[in-house]
Design a protein around this nucleic acid. Structure first.
Lengths: 236, 236
DNA sequence: CTGCCTAATATTGTATACAATTGAAATTCG
DNA sequence: CGAATTTCAATTGTATACAATATTAGGCAG
C-alpha cells in the first residue's frame, strides 16, 4: 500500500463485480445492448459463471451511473433515457467541458498532445472503415477524445463525472441519433486539439461548445415514442 | 407510473439499503461519524436489524459517491480524504458552480428566492446558537444553500454531482477545517443571493468563486498526518 | 525482553436457500 | 365469445451458510 490510494474513485468494490460492470458498461456504450433490454440476474450470472450476489453489485453500480435502470421487484434494464434526460446530459456537458478544457490546458504537456493526436488518428482510421463493428468502435473512440482531455486535468472526480456523461451521451446518441456522428464530429475534435496546441484555449472552448451543440442538433428529439407502454409493447 | 420517472437518478436501488445509506450519509456529513471509522457489516446490520446483504448494498453506494472507502477483504471505512482529493473537490466546485449559477438564474422565479431566503435565515439562526449540535446543523445548512441553487436548475444530473461534491466538502472541512466555517461563509451566501436577486449574475459568479476560495483557504492542508499507518495506530 | 513465526479468531467474499412480489396463463362466469 | 378472477410460474429481495482472507494473540527462539 505505497503508491496506490491516489485515485480515490478507483474503489475496487468487488473483484468479480467490477469485471462484470465493465463488460456490461462497454456493451451498452457500444450499443451492443439495446436500451430497454432486460438484464436478468440469473442470465447475467450464468453468463459470467457467478452467483446473483455479485451480479447485483454490478447492476447496482451501473444503476448509479445512469446506464441501467432498476425497478423495484422488477429487475434491471438497460437505461432508456428520456428526452428531458438527454437535454440535461448535454446541458451538463456544456457547463463542464469548457472549464475542463481550461484546466487541461494548464496541465498540458507535449506527451499529452501526442496521445491526443494518436486518438484522432485512430478515430480517422475508423471513419474510413466500413461495417457495424467499425461504427461501434468509432462511437467509443469519439468519446475517448473527451475522456482523454479529462484525464489530462489529473482530477479524478472530474474524470468520473465525464466518464458518466460520455457513457450516457453514447446511449442517447444510440437512441436518438440520426446521421452517423462521425462526419462533423471528427473534424471538430481535430480543430479543438489544434487550437489547444496553439495555446488558444478560448478558441478551443468556443469550438467545444459548438461541437456539443452539433452533437445535440443531430438528435431527433421529436419522437415521442418514449412511452413506456409502447416501449414494452414493441420489445415484447 | 404517470408523473414519476422524471428524475432518472432517483433509482430506488433497494428499499432498506436506501434508508441505511441515507442515515449513514447524513451521519458522515454532519461529522457524527469520524473519518476513518470502520463500518463493519455485522455491526451496521445489527444496528438496523437487517442482514449483511442489504448493508453491503448501502456501503457500496456510499463508496461510489466517495463518502466511504472499501478495501478488499478489509471492509468499509468512513472516507479519509487526502489533501490531493480535497484540492480536486474544490477545483471541481470552482469549475461547476459559476456555470450552475448562470443556469439557475435562467430558471429563477420568485418562489426560489423565497426558498433561498428561508435557508439563509435558518443558517443565520444556527450561527447564533451554541453547542455542537447547532454546529453540525450549520455545516449541513451551509451545504443546503449550494444544493438549493443546484435544484433550481432542474437538472437532475447536475444536482447529483453537487450532492456528491457538497457531501465530500463537508468531510474535508471536518478533517482540515480550522475555524468554524460560519462567520465568513454565511455573509457570502447572502451576498450571492442578493446579487442573484438583483439580476447581476456575473457578480454572483465572482462572489461564488471567492466564496469557494475562502472555504479552501480556511483549510489547514499542511498536516501530513494523512499517513494510513499512523491513522490506524491512532484509532486503535 | 524483543522479534518472528504459527495458530486461532474475526471479518469479508460468494453461493445458496427461502420469502415476497410481479406478470401471465388458465379457468370460470356473465 | 369476452372480461374478470384466480392460480401458477418466474424473478427479485433478503437471510443464512460456507469459503477465503486478514488480523490478532500466543508461543518459541534468540
Amino acid at each position: 500500500m505505497t503508491t496506490a490510494n491516489l485515485a480515490p474513485a478507483e474503489n475496487a468494490i468487488d473483484t468479480g463485480a467490477q469485471h462484470i460492470r465493465d463488460v456490461i458498461r462497454e456493451a451498452i456504450v457500444e450499443r451492443r445492448l439495446a436500451p430497454g433490454t432486460k438484464l436478468s440476474e440469473n442470465d447475467v450470472g450464468g453468463l459470467f459463471n457467478v452467483s446473483r450476489t455479485v451480479v447485483r453489485a454490478a447492476l447496482q453500480a451501473l444503476s448509479y451511473e445512469g446506464l441501467v435502470t432498476v425497478e423495484k421487484n422488477r429487475g434491471a434494464f438497460v437505461a432508456y433515457p428520456s428526452v428531458a434526460e438527454a437535454q440535461q446530459i448535454f446541458a451538463t456537458r456544456r457547463l463542464i467541458e469548457p472549464g475542463l478544457l481550461r484546466e487541461a490546458a494548464r496541465h498540458l504537456e507535449k506527451r499529452h498532445i501526442k496521445e491526443l493526436r494518436a486518438l484522432l488518428a485512430e478515430e480517422d482510421r475508423l471513419t474510413s472503415e466500413r461495417g457495424q463493428s467499425a461504427r461501434r468502435a468509432e462511437i467509443k473512440a469519439s468519446g475517448d477524445v473527451h475522456l482523454a482531455l479529462a484525464a489530462i486535468t489529473g482530477n479524478a472526480i472530474l474524470q468520473r463525472f465525464m466518464d458518466e456523461l460520455i457513457a450516457r451521451s453514447s446511449l442517447v446518441i444510440a437512441l436518438y441519433g440520426q446521421s452517423v456522428v462521425s462526419s462533423c464530429g471528427h473534424a471538430e475534435h481535430q480543430q479543438i486539439i489544434d487550437a489547444l496546441e496553439k495555446g488558444d484555449v478560448e478558441a478551443a472552448c468556443t469550438l467545444m461548445l459548438k461541437h456539443i451543440d452539433h452533437i445535440e442538433a443531430d438528435l431527433d428529439l421529436r419522437t415521442t415514442k418514449r412511452d413506456s407502454n409502447l416501449k414494452d409493447a414493441l420489445l415484447l
